[in-house]
Every structure is written in structure tokens, then in C-alpha cells.
Design a protein around this nucleic acid. Sequence first.
DNA 1: ATGAGGTCATAAGGCGGCCTTATGGCCGGT
DNA 2: ACCGGCCATAAGGCCGCCTTATGACCTCAT
Lengths: 296, 296
Amino acid sequence: MPDLPALELLLAVARLGSLGRAAAEAGISQPAASARMRTLERLAGVPLLERTPRGSVLTPAGVLVTEWAGPLLDAADELDTGLAALREDHNTRLRVEASLTVAEYLLPRWLVALREALPGVAVSLRVGNSTDVAARVLAGEADLGFTEGVRAPGGLDSAVVAHDRLTVVVAPGHRWARRRSPLPAAELAATPLVQREPGSGTREVLAAALARHGTPAADPLLELASTTALKAAAVSGAGPAVLSSLAVADDIASGRLVAVEVAGLALSRSLRAVWPHGTHPTGPARELLSLTRGTA
Amino acid sequence: MPDLPALELLLAVARLGSLGRAAAEAGISQPAASARMRTLERLAGVPLLERTPRGSVLTPAGVLVTEWAGPLLDAADELDTGLAALREDHNTRLRVEASLTVAEYLLPRWLVALREALPGVAVSLRVGNSTDVAARVLAGEADLGFTEGVRAPGGLDSAVVAHDRLTVVVAPGHRWARRRSPLPAAELAATPLVQREPGSGTREVLAAALARHGTPAADPLLELASTTALKAAAVSGAGPAVLSSLAVADDIASGRLVAVEVAGLALSRSLRAVWPHGTHPTGPARELLSLTRGTA
DNA sequence: ATGAGGTCATAAGGCGGCCTTATGGCCGGT
DNA sequence: ACCGGCCATAAGGCCGCCTTATGACCTCAT
């Protein structure tokens, strides 16, 4: 298993052109950096660096590992920032409360950006469903909230920060992937799906939308507890799954999954930032809100 | 910085419902698992598990961390598989040689899938430009090649496995993001861009396409050595960048970057699997090829 | 030619972390 | 009331990684 600090060091070497400078930046000694790179190269089996008396440059294999490591470290950074926000739950400066979809897909990047813009602010993060969020913002227990739903909660001012749409996805080999016309809602309802556990938000939204078509939904094909598991099952051809468009965007782009159009089904909802009615977010809350603005 | 094995263990606890069983699956003792979870919780500052005498279940914060960790561990798995393939460069069973774009964005997932389908096969991976790849496949030094370009290399049979298109991206705040009509190629050529270093494949393709419009390209605004750095610069508003569509798909989906249409510029190329003319890939090569099929 | 400055590798020693085994407390079911 | 599963704590040992010190090598300038 690759080791995150070693990968970070590799990127630093690529950027700075020398093992010693990378070591200094990482706050470790030059021999330690040398040893880390050696273990990483032992893991890869091929040299990743070309050492010269004037510095070190990446080999082609090193470039490849670098490119693979970039997204990995980004994800780690987002997780780390998220953990820090959870940690700040009590002694806080900016208290954010968000519904799960926003917390899962959008907030990590915003928090990373916020930390860059305002390094000093301690951000706390709580997770709750949309009514919880609204209640806590109203009660002044959170400075800024993020909710999901078709309409804004009452008593709050809000701004739409993103749109989310439940998307039906199948593996590329599935027959729905070759359809040229939208899938009738009735056929979707009659087909066993890979689903989240009962009580999950997306599952209930889907059930409600299908019920409006008067078609009783088939029993789930499989019930799984995490988005990752759901996607993996769909990719492996277990059957169609219904997921947030934010969760499957990259899988669709890379061709792992194919989105299936469904006729006449309203599966869209808005993700909103909310704050108490009549006020304007200020300070860090204002900054965070402005970071979300471009991404509508 | 979060610790990958600990995150994996957290997912195992979520899946198996008990610390002890997760420990057994990870091949460590139950107290070790307990300690790892405690460390992770100290990092998060809030409990991630609710311990009961009948097992452990995730708290809401635990669920959130789990969802954040999923993509991270997937990326780590892809990197790990890629490293293993680099390591097998000599004592090999399936020798793959790929151009950088394919190796970077598509191969990791295929290799993960291949390892699942055919756990025993030792896959080796080399990276080279498209003409290198063609030469080595012809020489019998690679069993399967992957190239990029507008047409297939001579002397080889090929199958298109994906399409790649150079895409102009800007930060959401950039004025090009609000255009409703395609950008004239001349305006793109006249605008300083965030670019890769000279000699990079995508940069040369772009230069050639712009030259065909008779417009001298402006000097780069900034020259960066990695895709990640390029994207980061574009996101932060440094200026427009031109990147592979595969590299920016998820950034576009999440709204971090906005794609800009360009009028009448041929920036598309095919990513192809190639093998010696007249033969059919067989064994593991056939399997890998079939894994790529759905993703055209 | 020669010395200065920079790069990286090797060697030896010390410290910390993590894992193991052993044990105890807690709760729910029988 | 007892048994079994689950988790926490405690003590001890081992491995790994880091640091400092040193040396070899190359390049450039004098």
C-alpha cells in the first residue's frame, strides 16, 4: 500500500527539482527523504527519479506515478479538512451544518478553498437532515446551513448553490445502455434496483416519484449501505442503480457507468445555502457563501 | 494526515458490524483495531463508532467519514495496482504498453477490474509515446498497446476504446464562462493560456490546431509541469487552460471549472488499443480488451 | 588544475509507535 | 444465574523511521 507522505514528497521533488529541497519543505532530513524515495521505488520496482549531481528529475514512470498521486492526495486533503471541521465542533468560529449530500460531495472542496482564503478560521461541521439544518440555523446554533429539497425551508433566506438530480445508471453492457429513447417510468418502477437501505433520503425521493406514476415499485435487487458499494455493484453489472448525479459524474465521464434517461420523472432537487431571514451572512460565512457562488 | 489502513478498517467495521470481525479480516488483533479506531476518532474529535455489547455501528459523523474515505481508498487501490503493474516490468505474463493519457486516466481502473477478473495474471506496464507503443507491439515486446492520435498506426489492428478531446476550461468567474456562443478560435489563439511545458503532447496538438487557423498563438501565461497544477491554476482563476476532457470531467460536473466551446477547432483524438495486424488478442490481453469495450 | 558548493548515498544510534498476548468489565440472551 | 460475545485496558517487545555524521561525486569558477 502506498504511503501518503512519500507520495507528497515525490510531488515536492518533482516541483523543486531536488531531494534535499523537498526534504526541507517536508521538514525532514535529506537522508530521510532519500530513504522514503527508495522504499517508494522498491514498491514500484522501477526507478522513479533520475539522480544527477545537479538535482533529481522524474523518470517517465515517475511522471506517471505523480499523475496518479495527484488526485489521491487531493482526496486525502479534502478528507483531512473535513476531519478538521468535524473536530472543531465545539470551540468554533464558523459553524456549518449541512445535509449529507452537500457534506459528502461539495463541502470538502469548499472547505479546502476556504482554508486557503482564510487560514485562521476554525470551521465546525455538523451533519443533519434538511429540517434539522433549518431548525439549528433558526435557533442560531449554526452560522450557515446547507439543505437539499425541491423548495427552500420556511423562515430562512437561501441561495441555490447547486442542483442535484437522481440519475439512473447501468453498466455499459446493460441493455438500457443502448436505448435511444427515454425509459418509461413504469419500466423503471417494475425493475428491481440496487438500492440504499430503507430510510435513506435518495431511496425515499425515488419511491415518492415513482408512486406518483401509480406504479408499485419492485422490491430492491440488493440493499447496500454506502454510495461506493452501490456504484461498485452497478459497475459490476448487478443491475441498475439510482444515485445522485454528483456521485456518478466522473463514472459517467469515464464510461464506467452509463446514465439512462427516464421519461417524465421529476428527480431533481436544489442544494441551498440557508441563513436566518432578513440577515446577511457575514465574515467567514460570507466568504464560504461566495466560494459556492460560481458552482451553480 | 489520515491513515489509509485505519480508513479501510473503518469501512470494514461498517460492513461487518463489529470491531473484532473487522480486525480478523484485516489480519490484526482486536485491540489493535480498537486502538486504530481510537486514533482516528481522536483525529476527528468526535466519536465515529457507537460501541454496543452487540457490535459497533457508525455514528452520523462516521457515515460521513466513510463516504469521504471511499473515493480516497479507490484512488489508492488504483495507484497500488498501477505500481504493481510497473513492478512486473520484467517477469511478466501480460505486457501492456500505453501512451501517457491512457495510462493516466483509463488504465488504473481497467487494471483493477482485470485483477478482479483474473487474479493470477502478472501485468506489466510501460509508458511511451504513441510511436514507441506501435514499435514495441510490432516487435513483439508488448502484448497489447494503447495509443492516442487521430488515426491508427500502420501495421497494427486496432479498436477505439475511448475518445479524448482537448477542452478549454476556465474558472466559473471568468467571462468566457458566461458566453452563450462558441468562442472564435482566433480569440483563443490570441489569449495567453496556462500551459504544460513545451514538448508536451497536448500542448503540441493545441498549437497545431491553432496554427491551422493562421493565427499565431500567444505566449503562455504560465507553464506548469503537471495536470494537477494546471487544474489548480485554472480553478484559482489564473486564466484559461486546455486539458484532456478525461482530466476535467469531474471538475466540470462539480462546477469547479466551466468548459468553453470553441468554434471550428478539431481538438479530438481517439484512444485505441492496438495489436499486431492479422492476430487476435488472446488470454489476458483479450480479457483486458473486452474490459475496455463498454467504455467507448 | 584546484577548491568550493551542491547533490545524493551510507552508516550508526536512538526514539517512538504499533502490534501482540493476557485480562477484565459489560450486556443480552438462555 | 450463567454463558458467550464484544470491547477496553495493561504490559511488553519488536520493527521502522528519523537524525546526525560522513563520504563520494560532479560542476563550476577561479
